[in-house]
Lab assay of single mutants.
Amino acid sequence: PEEVRRLVEELYRKGVSPEQVKKILKKQGIDEREIEKVLRRIG
């Protein structure tokens, strides 16, 4: 979803590592598979 992409990109631009991005967003209840999809697209 758009909102997940925005959150991931925001953290990524701040220099947060992909592993940390995953941890942070998982705590917020976001599906890990969604996060990984976005990270793959960015990375």
Rank of each mutant, 00 (worst) to 15 (best):
P1W: 13
P1F: 14
P1A: 10
P1T: 12
P1I: 08
P1N: 13
P1R: 10
P1Y: 14
E2P: 07
E2S: 11
E2C: 02
E2H: 08
E3N: 09
E3L: 08
E3Q: 07
E3W: 10
E3A: 11
V4H: 02
V4C: 05
V4R: 02
V4L: 14
V4E: 01
R5L: 13
R5T: 14
R5N: 14
R5F: 15
R6M: 09
R6D: 05
R6Y: 07
R6C: 04
R6N: 06
R6S: 07
R6L: 11
R6W: 08
R6P: 03
L7I: 06
L7R: 12
L7F: 06
L7K: 11
L7M: 11
L7A: 09
V8N: 00
V8M: 02
V8W: 02
V8L: 02
V8Y: 02
E9K: 12
E9H: 11
E9P: 00
E9S: 06
E9W: 14
E9M: 14
E9L: 14
E9F: 11
E10P: 01
E10Q: 11
E10W: 07
E10S: 09
E10I: 08
E10H: 10
E10M: 10
L11C: 01
L11P: 00
L11S: 01
L11T: 01
Y12E: 03
Y12P: 00
Y12W: 09
Y12D: 03
Y12H: 07
Y12T: 07
Y12R: 13
R13N: 11
R13Y: 15
R13I: 07
R13V: 08
R13D: 06
R13A: 08
R13S: 09
R13Q: 06
K14V: 08
K14E: 09
K14H: 08
G15N: 05
G15P: 01
G15T: 02
G15A: 03
G15V: 02
G15F: 04
G15Y: 03
G15C: 08
G15M: 04
G15H: 05
V16I: 11
V16K: 12
V16Y: 09
S17P: 13
S17M: 07
P18D: 09
P18K: 14
E19D: 12
E19M: 12
E19C: 06
E19V: 10
E19K: 13
E19H: 13
E19W: 14
E19I: 12
Q20D: 11
Q20N: 11
Q20Y: 09
V21I: 15
V21P: 00
K22A: 07
K22Q: 05
K22T: 10
K22Y: 13
K22S: 05
K22L: 13
K22F: 12
K22G: 04
K23N: 10
K23A: 12
K23I: 11
K23T: 11
K23P: 03
K23E: 10
K23S: 13
K23M: 12
K23C: 05
K23R: 12
K23G: 08
K23Y: 11
K23H: 10
I24D: 06
I24N: 03
I24G: 02
L25M: 04
L25E: 00
L25Y: 00
L25W: 00
L25Q: 00
L25D: 00
L25V: 02
K26L: 12
K26W: 04
K26V: 14
K26A: 09
K26F: 06
K27A: 13
K27I: 07
K27G: 10
K27C: 05
K27Q: 11
K27V: 07
Q28S: 10
Q28G: 06
Q28W: 07
Q28D: 06
Q28I: 12
Q28P: 01
G29A: 03
G29T: 01
G29W: 02
G29L: 03
G29E: 03
I30Q: 03
I30L: 13
I30G: 01
I30P: 00
I30K: 02
I30Y: 14
I30T: 02
I30C: 04
D31E: 09
D31L: 05
D31T: 06
D31Y: 02
D31F: 02
D31K: 06
D31A: 08
D31V: 03
D31H: 05
E32N: 05
E32W: 04
E32I: 06
R33W: 07
R33M: 08
E34R: 03
E34D: 07
E34Y: 05
E34N: 03
I35P: 00
I35N: 00
I35Q: 00
I35M: 02
I35W: 01
I35R: 00
E36C: 09
E36K: 04
E36T: 04
E36W: 03
E36Y: 02
E36N: 05
E36F: 02
E36S: 04
K37R: 11
K37F: 05
K37E: 15
K37N: 11
V38Y: 05
V38T: 04
V38N: 04
V38F: 04
V38P: 00
V38L: 05
V38Q: 11
L39E: 01
L39C: 03
L39P: 00
L39W: 01
L39F: 03
L39K: 00
L39Q: 03
L39N: 01
L39V: 03
L39I: 11
L39H: 01
R40A: 14
R40H: 15
R40V: 15
R40T: 14
R40G: 13
R40N: 15
R41F: 15
R41G: 15
R41V: 15
R41Y: 15
R41P: 15
R41D: 15
R41I: 15
R41L: 15
R41T: 15
R41M: 15
R41E: 15
R41Q: 15
I42F: 14
I42T: 04
I42D: 06
I42N: 03
I42C: 13
I42Q: 04
I42K: 03
I42R: 01
I42P: 15
I42A: 04
G43A: 15
G43S: 13
G43T: 13
G43Y: 15
G43E: 15
G43I: 15
G43N: 14
G43P: 15
G43H: 15
